[in-house]
Design a protein around this nucleic acid. Structure first.
Length: 753
DNA sequence: GTTCTAGAAC
DNA sequence: GTTCTAGAAC
């Protein structure tokens, strides 16, 4: 035991709303030690002050023998640096990290209107979002003697108790406590959107680059598709990843079924050789998870020797269920090394694909077949709501069953490689034929496989969901648009105040506002959720939760109001307040559910000012915007300008004014926002910038009218800008175009917006 | 909401 | 030649 307890400086780390102040106050009020809470938001006579004031105040308190809480966000290492320096011999510097999933939910933090930091509504959402994207969790190496990570509520309680109970003569053990989570992601989705997948910051998910054998054989084995061709990589990805149908397939039977790898590689190359000229613009890609994969190098070598066109067939190191999201390779079709029962499980590719595709794949598979014989393949279209579809762009899974050489598994061939090879050939043939059949059904007008462009969406919607879609279209067409035309004239739907729950067939048909049947889809789902089991996630009395059919981010769901006559915010009045609150809390519940799976997500809940589809719906959307469906300026702006109205703001507004602004302003005003230059936020690596001349390229961009407006955020390393055109900013993503923050103060462009 | 197309703009 | 936009169709 030491002679007496040392003073402590506790640097709190957490986003606004994470509970830092509550934590500090609870400990300080215990009185077990003389604590003082230093809060930058209030240090200046109750108003926000500076970091310097905090430090001065901390030093003074230390002299008085007090222990200190530094109550500010401190999310970045740079921001913490000076507080760590306060530590002198006899003073410990600790960090307490409040990293709770629920706190990452922006709408919760902005709900607290009385917060000292004066964060407000949608602006707060942007600030919190920005902060979290820059989050760097503290490490002992920064100079902390103790770090406590709290990812869950009980952990916060424990940490609180630890500090509260700490008497003046006690010390806490040094080291890291609690579980540390990954640092926040950069805006990967934006990078991908701008086709700069490699701009991500060293993601641990990214597979290693496999080069050894491919270089030798001049045959491409890649892990990130854009790296295949270096000089004109951008162009390659652009045309290849969205327009070219690619079948990604694992090596069949060589893993679990223990088929001889040398023989298997011969067969792969042989059958690929037979099909490679029938592919048109499509491509085949052999995928394996491990970079040291023997099968990949064997196949690559043999394919090269056989002069198989390497632009038509290549190998790829990566996870077959994350080819696009982690490797930048978009494959619209993937093959599954299935089991004969066509069921999930068994580990390996089969388990991974069923798990990644979601339960619908099993249903869709078993609708078509209950089992599969060795040497056969089964094409199964994926629902566009499947994560494999929305995240990876996969439209079809082809199940294949190869021969079994593993005595541990049923129906083993007992080393009969004559039969084994025959079945394996048959399996690959069936697989590639299945792929060709998908290609040929994509565009019924073309049979020769020459022009299968636009498959990214074409297959998914036109073929993949053919049945569903026809069913649904028919339904909508019959239920609303066709009949409604007859009724429209005399219906006189005036969009007046609330109407009773509208379940009558006639009313629904009337309320079309002249839009096509597609615009009725949400309304139909809200009124008859039981007819749409493929998208409906939850049905309550007043709201229905559904998946967004074209998610614009990793997580994107809609909470629909079930009340009739409520098409958009324009129809919302005071009597709908309770409904708005229920929609909000339901959305929050689902956001929190997602946060349990991936706590690095950040959510916003809000409404579009002028929605395209009828029926009031709340978007619950994660802020990564990582989705193949986010394609243009309108998509971006609809979630990143004032066109998107935060749910909390809407509720507040309706409570105050009895209606929303949207209900009284000219509807073109919000729509104009969709056409605004998109505003982006970028992190950049400070080390990549050199010298004062680094601004010149920016000035050039400005002069050439590409750059409209930009500024550096108060925190270092963040750059906000807007562009005249959506794609013009590719150029900016190169580090050398971004300014060093030291130069930024003296550098201001006039705003043109 | 999405896709496709033509024509304008670069 | 490519990119962007608006409009039509669904």
């Amino acid at each position: 035991m030491e002679e007496e307890g040392r003073q402590i400086v506790v640097v709190m780390v957490g986003a606004p709303g994470s509970g830092k102040s509550t934590f500090c106050e609870a400990v300080a009020s215990s009185g077990n030690r003389p604590w003082i809470r230093i809060c930058q938001d209030t240090i200046n006579n109750g108003k926000a002050g500076t970091k310097a004031q905090c430090i001065a105040s901390a030093l003074a308190a230390l002299k008085e023998g007090k222990s200190i809480f530094i109550d500010r966000c401190n999310l970045e290492r740079e921001q913490r640096k000076e507080f760590v320096k306060i530590g002198v011999p006899g003073v410990d510097v600790h960090a307490v990290v409040l990293d709770l999933p629920a706190q990452l939910c922006i709408s919760r933090s902005v709900k607290r209107m009385g917060h000292e930091g004066n964060l407000h509504g949608g602006k707060a959402a942007a600030v919190v979002n920005r902060m979290l994207q820059k989050k760097e969790l503290p490490k002992l190496g920064e100079g902390f003697s103790r770090i406590t990570y709290c990812c869950k509520e009980p952990e916060v309680k424990d940490a609180l108790a630890t500090y509260r109970d700490l008497g003046p003569t006690c010390n806490l053990p040094q080291g890291c406590f609690g579980q540390k989570k990954e640092d926040a992601k950069v805006q990967l989705g934006i990078m991908k959107f701008l086709k700069k997948v490699d701009a991500q910051d060293g993601s641990s998910h990214k597979p290693e680059i496999k080069e050894s054998c491919s270089e030798k054989n001049a045959f491409p084995t890649t892990s990130a598709y854009h790296e295949e061709k270096t000089t004109e990589g951008d162009v390659m990805v652009r045309s290849a990843d969205s327009d070219t149908p690619i079948l990604a397939f694992p090596s069949i039977s060589t893993a679990d079924f223990q088929f001889n790898i040398d023989k298997a590689s011969d067969i792969i190359v042989e059958i690929v050789g037979e099909f490679v000229n029938k592919l048109g613009t499509a491509k085949l890609c052999l995928v394996d998870l491990t970079s040291g994969s023997k099968i990949l190098s064997l196949v690559a070598a043999k394919a090269s020797k056989k002069n198989i066109d390497s632009s038509k067939f290549f190998t790829f190191v990566g996870d077959i269920v994350h080819l696009y999201s982690r490797g930048g390779l978009r494959c619209n079709v993937i093959a599954n090394a299935a089991n004969w029962r066509l069921k999930p499980g068994g580990g390996g590719v089969n388990a991974a694909i069923f798990s990644a595709a979601g339960p619908d794949l099993l249903v869709a598979t078993h609708e078509r077949a209950k089992s599969l014989l060795p040497g056969n393949a089964l094409v199964v279209p994926l629902q566009s709501t499947s994560p494999l579809s929305s995240r990876e762009g996969v439209t079809h899974v082809i199940h294949v069953l190869g021969p079994n050489m593993n005595p541990q598994r049923p129906n083993c061939l007992n080393g009969d490689y004559n039969e084994g090879c025959r079945i394996l050939r048959q399996a690959y043939t069936a697989l590639f034929e299945g792929f060709l059949s998908i290609l040929s059904t994509t565009k019924p007008s073309t049979r020769d496989g020459e022009m299968f462009h636009r498959t990214e969406h074409g297959i998914g919607e036109d073929i993949g969901n053919g049945e569903q879609r026809n069913k649904r279209d028919g339904e909508f067409a019959a239920a609303s648009s066709k009949k409604s035309r007859g009724h429209q004239v005399d219906a006189e739907y005036g969009g007046t105040n609330s109407k009773p729950r509208d379940n009558s067939e006639t009313r629904q048909k009337v309320n079309t506002k002249g839009r096509g049947s597609w615009a009725q889809a949400l309304h139909q789902t809200a009124m008859h959720p039981e007819r749409h089991p493929d998208v409906v996630m939850e049905v309550l009395d007043n709201v229905v939760v559904i998946k967004d059919l074209y998610p614009k981010a990793e997580k994107h769901i809609l909470v629909l109001a079930r009340l009739g006559g409520l098409d958009s915010l324009a129809d919302v009045h005071e009597e709908h307040l309770e409904l708005l609150r229920e929609m909000h809390s339901t959305g929050m519940k689902w956001a929190e559910k997602s946060l349990l799976e991936d706590s690095s997500l950040v959510f916003r809940l809000g409404y579009h000012s002028v929605p395209s589809m009828r029926q009031l719906h709340l978007h619950v959307i994660s802020q990564d915007f990582n989705s193949p469906h986010l394609k243009n300026k309108k998509h971006w702006n609809s979630f990143n300008t004032a066109f998107f109205q935060d749910s909390v703001d809407v509720i507040e507004e309706v409570a105050k004014n009895g209606k929303t602004v949207a209900s009284c302003i000219n509807w073109t005003a919000p729509q104009r926002k969709l056409k605004m230059p998109p505003v982006f936020l970028l992190r950049f690596r400070r080390t990549a910038i050199s010298g004062r001349n680094s601004l010149t390229p920016l000035q050039q961009l400005y002069a050439s009218n590409i750059l409209l407006n930009y500024h550096l955020d108060e925190a270092e390393g963040v750059f906000m800008f807007s562009s005249r055109s959506f794609n013009g900013f590719d150029q900016l993503l190169h580090d050398e175009h971004l300014p060093d923050d030291q130069d930024a103060d003296s550098f201001h462009f006039p705003s043109r917006l």
